[in-house]
């Protein structure tokens, strides 16, 4: 601690004894100390090792079960931050793992999947979710990933309203939240890349919901899926083998300076609505050209 010159000290002017007989004191200059990390878990809780394992397990589902086909994958940048935005569907949505798996496999760069903080509160699930690239959907988190670390983040602006809708509302995109994703992209100065997903609705269609049970269990929604009705409990985690097709749309950039305190709310809402309608139109277009739910 810095010596505080009290009056007495100034008065006596004592020489430190180290002046009389030199004492070798180690220099206070910081020398790097080794870092004994044992795992590769990053500050988001993502582990590349765990991701590789998850990719290995998911690969058969990705290429054999869903037979995923991409269109326009080259529109996703190979470096720099970008916000991937997609439509969200299916009781336990398969679109998130499909997009994360596909981008990591084809482009070789990590994707942080943003979801409701609810996942953090569930034992085991929360930890596995974090290790495989899940991050809770907070604006501060998105900004840090996109702006400070220049990585890819994936968000579903519909939130839980997307996967909780019944099969009768399939491919009807819900409200895009409050446009927060646009504001974050503006603040971080990164493009929004919309991805239209087809197949997720049929992989796990919701026949009806049990809101009372959901409330009692503290879940966002409690779906009764066709999978459950057909195969019993076995059907809870297993999706139908619907053909997945994904189309990456042109990146949307905003002509505004980054790091502003506030952005025009009307501009933000306009952009969010525009992105929603492009995605909705693209999904309709893909449905028009689809001959079979199972074979594409």
């Amino acid at each position: 601690m810095a010596p505080m010159p009290t009056r007495r000290e100034v008065a006596t002017k004592q020489r430190p004894t180290t002046d009389i007989v030199p004492l070798r004191i180690p220099s206070s200059a910081p020398e790097p100390v080794e870092d004994p990390r044992l795992s590769d878990v990053d500050e988001w809780g993502r582990s590349e090792h765990m991701r590789a394992l998850a990719r290995q397990l998911y690969e058969p589902i990705y290429s054999k079960w869903f037979r995923v086909e991409w269109e326009g994958l080259e529109k996703i940048p190979t470096d720099g931050g970008a916000l991937l935005v997609a439509n969200h569907a299916g009781a336990i949505p398969s679109d998130a793992p499909v997009i994360m798996h596909g981008v990591e496999k084809e482009l070789g760069r990590p994707v942080y999947g943003m979801a409701d903080y609810f996942f953090r509160t569930v034992p085991v699930v929360g930890t596995l979710w974090a290790r495989t690239g899940g991050v809770s959907a907070k604006p501060e988190n998105a900004y840090r990933i996109l702006h400070d670390q220049r990585q890819l983040a994936l968000v579903f602006p519909e939130g839980t309203k997307g996967p909780s809708k019944s099969f009768t509302d399939r491919y009807q995109l819900r409200r895009f939240g409050r446009g927060g994703f646009v504001e974050i992209a503006m603040r971080a100065g990164v493009p929004v890349i919309p991805i239209a997903v087809m197949g997720s609705e049929e992989a796990m269609p919701i026949v009806f919901r049990l809101p009372a049970l959901a409330k009692a269990l503290g879940l966002p929604y409690f779906p009764v899926t066709a999978n459950l009705l057909l195969f019993g409990p076995l059907g809870i985690p297993i999706p139908f083998p619907a053909k997945f097709k994904l189309r990456v749309l042109d990146p949307v950039t905003f002509d505004v300076p980054p790091d502003q305190e506030r952005y025009s709310k009307s501009r933000v809402m306009d952009e969010a609505e525009r992105i929603r309608s492009i995605l909705q139109e693209t999904v309709y277009d893909m449905l028009r050209n689809r001959r079979s739910v199972w074979f594409g």
Binding site: E43, W44, Y117, F118, R120, T121, V135, S136, K138, E140, N141, R144
Partner: peptide
């Protein structure tokens, strides 16, 4: 420390 916390 809460589930609603930002990462950093």
């Amino acid at each position: 420390s809460s589930e609603k916390d930002p990462n950093t």
